[in-house]
């Protein structure tokens, strides 16, 4: 019986190996399921919810919706956002708090989406960019409000 077991082991083992080889051999000759992408040539369109970086929405009149309320700054776990406010003089002559610069540290951001959830006016959103590499760290500190932009009418 020892000999029978021995031969069974040998043939069973060889068969299991051949089954595995059949599988890899199948993929060698069938290239339909190739999963890699030709990255810089063919770029994948990322879904709209993909979180790549925080951007501020500006309309065609160069107006944004940020009131400088710092809700996003408070919501951020990493101190990624720093908001500098100024005081605008309204036509009535009153002083009103407004956004001066919206500083965004991309190098600290973990794309957790909490700032966007916190924003009461929907001024910021996540963009689908992902090619963030630069040669100098200072280039990652971004100012999100465009120069000369101002608060949209009617946003409080």
């Amino acid at each position: 019986m020892f000999i029978v077991d021995y031969i069974k082991t040998v043939f069973g083992g060889v068969k299991s190996l051949l089954v595995g080889m059949n599988r890899t051999g199948y993929y060698f000759f069938h290239h339909k399921e190739i999963i890699t992408q030709q990255y810089p040539d063919v770029k994948q369109v990322l879904p709209e919810r993909f979180r790549g970086e925080v951007v501020m929405i500006h309309d065609e009149k160069n107006e944004h919706r940020c009131t400088g309320c710092t809700a996003c700054e408070l919501a951020c776990p990493n101190a990624t956002i720093k908001i500098v406010t100024k005081f605008d003089i309204t036509p009535e002559g009153k002083k009103k708090k407004a956004l001066d610069t919206f500083v965004y540290h991309l190098e600290l951001c973990t794309m957790c989406n909490l700032c966007i959830e916190a924003c009461p006016t929907g001024a910021i959103k996540m963009d689908q960019t992902f090619e963030h590499s630069v040669y100098d760290r200072s280039l990652l500190i971004k100012i999100l409000n465009k120069p000369g932009s101002k608060l949209m009418e009617g946003v409080e």
Binding site: R49, C112, M126
Partner: peptide, 22 residues
């Protein structure tokens, strides 16, 4: 990874990230 990528794509679409979804 072929199968894992499919799940990651589903996650990416609904949760917004592939690995650290929050």
């Amino acid at each position: 990874f072929r199968e894992r990528e499919m799940i990651n794509d589903i996650m990416e679409e609904s949760c917004g990230a592939r690995l650290t979804m929050n």
